[in-house]
């Protein structure tokens, strides 16, 4: 049957991460996104390395097949 109808592509949702960066030493820490996270928000946590102020520096989505897809992209 799959010859006629083709394989159905399974749509996968990205995993959303929040990257926290220490304002003083630049130490980065990645964790799963939580509600009310936004970029350049000062968090209540302190840096594990130097106890400096930690700020959210990035929020992004990572797709499960991203690495495989990257290989197929023609670089220009």
């Amino acid at each position: 049957m799959w010859l006629f109808f083709g394989k159905k592509k399974k749509k996968e949702d990205p995993t959303i991460y929040t990257v926290e960066t220490c304002h003083d030493c630049g130490e980065k820490n990645r964790r799963i996104f939580e509600p009310n996270d936004y970029i350049y928000k000062k968090t209540t946590t302190t840096c594990k390395k130097c106890t400096g102020i930690v700020m959210i520096s990035a929020v992004y989505g990572e797709y499960p097949l991203e690495k495989q897809k990257q290989k197929n992209v023609i670089a220009v």
């Binding site: 990035a58 929020v59 989505g61 990572e62």
Partner: peptide, 12 residues
């Protein structure tokens, strides 16, 4: 228009 992809964020 969807969640910022890692590649876009990494272009910062």
């Amino acid at each position: 228009i969807t969640i910022m992809r890692k590649e876009i964020s990494e272009s910062f």
